[in-house]
């Protein structure tokens, strides 16, 4: 894994859950290639359910979280203003940085101002795809979405992540159906399918034979009462 991981994907693709899960996992690892670890939340397009809301949990695990410029009201500020401080982890060669991008082409646009950090080869750009999202429901619409992000960023996606899910109603069959589409999409786009996520505690990896590699996703962002 390279130093900067930019995670893009449609709202509901689960990119924020992935960003938080990944940061939590890396924080617990002893053998990290980079001594420092940061999560940069660039999701200025979405007013609710941002990774900044789990800031306390992440910071308690040693992950530095960067978001907008209003520390006290950051999670609710409507202004799409970013703090200049978030350039620090992007510039620091000793900092593994996970960037959580906004959920569509307009949301991704904010990354452009940081373009100089992506000229080299120490970054990866992942596109998270959920084929059970209405707006990326088949290979064609998912491809359009990934390409619109690439066009907006003027960067090439380096790999796909399959996170086909239906929240608490996710089943092994839904994940398998998504996996088949993700393999086909990766093939069409000439991209590697990096891994397939599954909701830990909801779907067992034993029921996902034939899908590899697998990555367990913690459910950090969604409040439990939303599933009542």
């Amino acid at each position: 894994m390279r130093r900067i991981i930019v995670i893009s994907g449609h709202y509901g693709s689960g990119k924020t859950e992935l960003a938080v899960s990944l940061a939590m996992d890396l924080a617990k690892r002893q053998d990290r290639p980079f001594p420092r670890l940061s999560l940069v939340d660039l999701d200025v397009a979405n007013p609710y359910f941002r990774s900044r809301e789990r800031m306390d949990l992440l910071q308690a695990h040693g992950v530095r979280v960067y978001g907008d410029s209003f520390d006290s009201t950051g999670a609710t500020a409507e202004l799409p203003a970013l703090t200049a401080a978030l350039r620090a982890p992007l510039e620091d060669p000793g900092c593994q940085t996970i960037v959580d991008l906004g959920g569509n082409d307009a949301g991704a646009r904010v990354l452009r101002q940081f373009g100089k950090y992506f000229e080299g080869d120490d970054h990866e750009l992942w596109a998270v795809v959920n084929f059970r999202r209405y707006e990326t429901r088949d290979i064609e619409t998912a491809r359009e979405h990934v390409e619109s992000i690439e066009n907006e960023l003027r960067l090439r996606v380096t790999g796909l992540v399959n996170n086909t899910h239906l929240l608490r109603e996710s089943t092994p069959d839904i994940l398998k159906e998504g996996y088949e589409k993700a393999v086909a999409l990766a093939d069409i786009m000439g991209l590697p399918l990096l891994f397939t996520c599954y909701p830990a505690g909801l779907v067992s990896p034993e029921d996902l034979k034939g899908i590899a590699p697998l990555y367990p996703l913690g459910l950090y962002i969604r409040p439990a009462y939303l599933d009542k």
Binding site: Y11, G12, N130, R132, R133, Y134, E135, R137, H165, L166, L167, E169
Partner: peptide, 15 residues
């Protein structure tokens, strides 16, 4: 009629 799909509330309202 669609299969069950994941939608954000506002998008689903509009659709």
């Amino acid at each position: 009629i669609t299969d069950k799909v994941l939608m954000k509330g506002n998008e689903a309202f509009a659709e």
